[in-house]
Structures are given as structure tokens and as C-alpha cells.
Design a protein around this nucleic acid. Sequence first.
DNA 1: GTGGAAAATAGGAATCGTTCTCATTCTCGG
DNA 2: CCGAGAATGAGAACGATTCCTATTTTCCAC
Lengths: 147, 147
Amino acid sequence: MDDVHATVARRLSDAGQRYTPKRRDLVEALRRVGRPAATQDLVRGRRGLPQSSVYRNLSVLEQVGAVRRVITEEGVARYELSEDLTTHHHHLVCRSCGAVEDVTIPARLERTVERTLAEAAAAAHFEGALHRVDLIGTCRDCRGVTA
Amino acid sequence: MDDVHATVARRLSDAGQRYTPKRRDLVEALRRVGRPAATQDLVRGRRGLPQSSVYRNLSVLEQVGAVRRVITEEGVARYELSEDLTTHHHHLVCRSCGAVEDVTIPARLERTVERTLAEAAAAAHFEGALHRVDLIGTCRDCRGVTA
DNA sequence: GTGGAAAATAGGAATCGTTCTCATTCTCGG
DNA sequence: CCGAGAATGAGAACGATTCCTATTTTCCAC
């Protein structure tokens, strides 16, 4: 899928920025992981990118809409590829270990939620409202011991 | 509304903990604020509770289900009274200044979302799933200048 | 009441993720 | 090939949160 890299490259250049090797590495790493990756994971990853570069570049990539910052219960930032580079999805957040998985829900349900929340946002006179829908529960690993 | 304090007191004592004046102050402060308060606000509040006490007690209150920790885009923790001490609601999070407001949506819509997400959680074989539905947009203050 | 054990408090040190600074290196247009 | 601006990376700075510990408070048994 060079699509992803091509798209990211275009968005960067549209913003007057370059698609440097480090940035490509980051995007590639995020694509491989396939779910929101903690910043520290990227720093400590096998390639060992320097901390300052990881933070700086994730920030740049976020500004051009290539990646999205995801907030979790633990106090750490996670990043994933922007939804329009992957697919629309939600997150399963493990309340025990903080791990995050992607989930998609049936299109019909998705539409219902979408419409419902759009109404709610309108009712609240809220502008430019995105919504964040996450499920918080217990992941397989953390449940394994008990169940 | 002594209900709130009475309920908190009971939950604490059920857990073998005390409802000390400091803890009562915290609960009272959260009740007055009426929306998720940043920890720092409580520390710097007029009463100036010591930092270590604020953190320690919020943690205790969270464990007994009296307050809930709310995660926002900014990296700071916010706390609000537990939903069963107030009313079911969602949050409007301002993407510009990080402020959080409570919103309720019509009961009919609420039920739809509820049911929809319950199905989604079941489909994902996810256990004990709560969901978090927040709207992210721009608050009146931050919009005021532009609009 | 009084004494003592357990809980709570508060001040500050320690931690840790994140941001900032700046000197060096790279890159691209001319 | 040169120079300006962009990017890099090492480490300092920062700030929210957690941890440590000596002191104070609270509650219960006597």
C-alpha cells in the first residue's frame, strides 16, 4: 500500500513540509502496528528513533492530518494513522492494562450512532462536533486468568 | 443536597474508609463546579487544599465509586461526581481550550445509542463494556471571536 | 476520659511523559 | 557548488502525578 505513503507525502508537501525518512519510518511503524501505538513504543521500537524526533514528527504528522492522537485512560498519548488512511473504527480500551484494539461495528449500527449523535450535537448548539465513541472493558489477556 | 454526602459517606465506610473533612471539601467542590474539574483547579481553589491530599483523596473517592476520572485531550486529569450521584450525561470537550461541559441528550436518543453500543460490544466479545461518548468541538468562548 | 493503633494528612522529593532549546546536519532551489 | 531554511538529536526544562515519611487525627477498647 503505497497509497498511504503517497497520501501522507502529499499532505506534507501541501503544508510545505517534507516527507523525510524518519517520518516515513514513523508512518510505516504505525501502519504495521495496526492500532494506536504509545509514543514510548515508537521510541523504544527496534529502530530506536530518538525521542525528540518521534514527538516532533508525530506532532507534524498530526497537524497535516496524517495521524491522530488518541487519548486513553492511562496518561499516555497514543497515535494511529488518520481514519481516512485506514477505515472508520472505534476503540476497545482495556481498563486493566490500557491496551487499545480497533473494532468496527456493523454499518447499520454505525449510521444510527452517527445520526443520533449529530442530532445531539445540533441540540447542544455545538459547532464542528466530532464524536469519540470508545468501549471500555477488559481485554482477552487480562481476562484470561480469571475466565 | 445531603444525599450526595450521605451516599459518599456510606460508600466510604462500606470500604472501611472515613469521610474526613478534606474529603467532604473535595466532594463539595466538585458538586459546586458541576462539571469535570481539573485536579489543579482543586489544588489552587480558594481553599487551597494541599496537592498530595487532593490526589490521594480523589484516588480514594474514585475507588469507592464516588467520583469518576475523566480523560480529556489535554494531558490533565479531571474529576466529576459519579454519574449515579448526579445524572447520566456526556461531555462536550472544547478542542481549542480543553474546557469540558456536561450535556444530556434526549432520552430516546440516549436509549438508541445505548442499545446500539451494547450490540457492538457483544459483537466484539468484549466483557464488562462501558462506553464513553464525547463530543469534540468548539466552545462558545473560543468561537466568540470568530463567529 | 485515656491510650494506643490505624488512618489520614501535608510537605517535599522523585518519577515520568512530554516539550523546548540549540548546535549540527541535511536538503533543495538557484 | 552555495546558501537558506528545514530537520535532526541530545539533553535540559517542565509539569502533572506519584511516592515517601514524619506528624497529626480519629476511633475504639478499656
